[in-house]
Design a binder for these strands. Structure first.
Lengths: 275, 275
DNA sequence: CGGGTTCTTGACTAGTTTCAAGCAAAGTGG
DNA sequence: CCACTTTGCTTGAAACTAGTCAAGAACCCG
């Protein structure tokens, strides 16, 4: 399994276009790029995602005005900025983060396929966080100007959006619990287990392994620890043999043990909305 | 200014009924208690809150089915539980928190008048956090069963609810940044400044002071620190003379300095929704 | 091959928790 | 109205956790 392998790519975006230098928020693909029609969306069939009625599907299809491809490392949503767009991740990983004046960074959460980004910016006046691509990504682009249309004509979709916002909040609540009250090792175990579980939901796992695209520096910035301490904690976790982690491939050897370490009460999942 | 003073009580709930032992979620006020009609809502006129159209007002009035009064310390929303209701705080303070198995507690946020509680439980199947009253409270009660009605008939209110969810997420994002990347002193300064600013929005402040109802233990559980270290940090903050804090009365002496300490970029506020 | 990024390690320092105790104010009950 | 209990705040010392600095190793990529 070589670097930037297929594990984190959905079939339709198998050959991510690293070479497309999408440097800025405004950079879109040339018009000749064809949009993936929503009825062929590779994510929709996943059992974790709720189905659409034909009317919903038709609306969403018209709501999607573009498809954006960005290179790994692209900063495509910026703090204190107003964004014209709302995105859904089609493929690839991103992370949401905030910065302090002196450069200290806190990663708030990761986004994977089927996650929505930029909702805050679409609803409030400004974004209060930034988002960077961690890998090459494909994003569905929705105009914020039509969000009102969605709310008036499709209450079911409006409800879904609120659902997604509430779920995002839940994730951050969990994270806050981690940073505030879990030990370094528990925190790490919790984060890795939950990223694994989310990746599983959208089919990014094979057996018990995923391709995790982040570095230990990202991990450190997620866990609120220094790089050095993160490294030592990772080694401590690996020493337990509960997980394996070589190259960028992460494997859960004993999921129950990992859950115990994470202090996690496993929660049953129900199909979730996805727009 | 004596304990449980008026600073944190809105006019209409001036004499909080401590003696009403509202022990459980299901405990409601006897039917003889009259509901405060929404058109006389004491919060609505505040400049920080957006106005309603007559239709919206009429709907919300019918949406509000009860008014709940709970004593300080009441746990009125519980983790892993499904709640039939959605609440808006009319008066008093509450806090949202999560617990780990062994009792470690992380306070996620505080709720003050005009804040909505229990949205997560109304939208998802279960609550993922608990909420306790910090003071005697009055709450408007909305049935989750009619939330769908709201979404289909009043997209503007549906939008407001999403707005409120997004705002709550913003607060937690900030908190996560604090716990992960701010020093103990910065963290404390940030929390206090922001609670002060929120209290100000809904008229809980007088000059530069508020009645803060929480103890240092609550503070510790909010900041992710031990009680002892919180105490020393509070003393360190008081030593700067930037704030005063006697009995439960907190006073901001030099707001700019406090903002600098907190590493806070002051954000301009626009009127927010309130249901 | 060479330069950059990522990971690893050791030694030292700073920050934070834990334990233990004492004190002050408020609340309770005879 | 006065012991008595409880709750919240404060303090010191010891132990531990985590951060910083510095340097080297491993890996990746052109």
């Amino acid at each position: 399994m070589e670097h930037c392998g297929r594990l984190f790519c959905t079939p339709l975006t198998d050959r991510p276009s690293n070479q497309i230098g999408a440097a800025m928020d405004s950079s879109r693909l040339p018009a000749n790029a064809r949009l993936l029609p929503c009825e062929l969306c590779p994510l929709r069939p996943r059992p974790a995602l709720r189905e659409f009625s034909p009317e919903e599907l038709a609306f969403v299809k018209s709501f999607k005005v573009d498809e954006l491809r960005v290179a790994a490392g692209t900063n495509f949503l910026r703090e204190r900025t107003q964004s014209e767009h709302l995105y859904t991740v089609l493929s690839g990983w991103a992370f949401r983060y905030k910065l302090l004046d002196d450069g200290r960074r806190q990663i708030l959460n990761y986004a994977i396929p089927a996650d929505m980004l930029g909702l805050q910016g679409a609803i409030m006046k400004e974004m209060e966080h930034s988002v960077d691509a961690l890998t090459p990504m494909a994003l569905c682009v929705f105009p914020r100007t039509r969000l009102w249309d969605l709310y008036s004509r499709f209450p079911s979709l409006a409800f879904d959006i609120t659902w997604l916002a509430a779920r995002e909040e839940q994730h951050i609540d969990e994270n806050l619990l981690s940073l505030g009250r879990r030990s370094a090792l528990e925190r790490l175990a919790y984060l890795l287990l939950h990223l694994f579980a989310r990746a599983e939901e959208v089919g990014l796992t094979q057996n018990r392994s995923v391709q995790f695209p982040f570095t230990q520096q990202h991990l450190a910035d997620s866990l609120g620890m220094s790089l050095v301490h993160t490294n030592r904690t990772v080694q401590r976790l690996l020493a337990t043999k509960i997980v394996r982690w070589n190259n960028r491939v992460f494997e859960v050897v004993d999921r129950d043990e990992l859950a115990v370490l994470a202090g996690d009460e496993a929660q049953p999942r129900v199909p979730r909305p996805f727009i």
